[in-house]
């Protein structure tokens, strides 16, 4: 038992905070990109209301899966928990998504 506790303590200690921050930023970067592309897609398809939100959620989860696949489903090298890649910074790209959704929708449909 004592050994186990020891190990966990070391694992926490051995994380370099700035590197972790960099990884988080990269994830946020990818989320941003996904939000913009999916916003454009949702606008061009003419989705409104909750359907758009659904597309955003799908895109965010999709980019999470792509990121996971990129690291062969082993995130322990980059993040302390898998959660961080899956749903960390989930709403990061929301504003970008809404902006591009509105832009594309308006350009295609309301004029």
């Amino acid at each position: 038992m004592a050994v186990k506790k020891d190990r966990r303590f070391f694992d926490e200690q051995l994380i370099i905070e700035s590197m972790l921050g960099h990884n988080r930023r990269v994830v946020a970067h990818c989320r941003n990109f996904a939000a913009i592309v999916s916003g454009l897609a949702a606008g061009i398809l003419g989705l409104t209301g909750l359907w758009g939100l659904l597309v955003f959620v799908m895109a965010t989860l999709g980019i999470s899966l792509i990121l996971l696949a990129r690291v062969n489903f082993d995130t322990s090298l980059y993040f302390p928990t898998v959660k961080e890649v899956l749903i960390g910074q989930f709403w990061h790209g929301m504003m970008s998504f809404i902006l591009f959704w509105t832009l594309a929708y308006d350009m295609v449909y309301i004029f």
Partner: peptide
């Protein structure tokens, strides 16, 4: 809302490099 797209443009060549 332009923060996202601007940061994407600023780091066009890949991930944000320098902390």
């Amino acid at each position: 809302a332009s923060g996202g797209i601007v940061s994407l443009l600023l780091n066009l060549r890949g991930a944000p490099q320098h902390e």
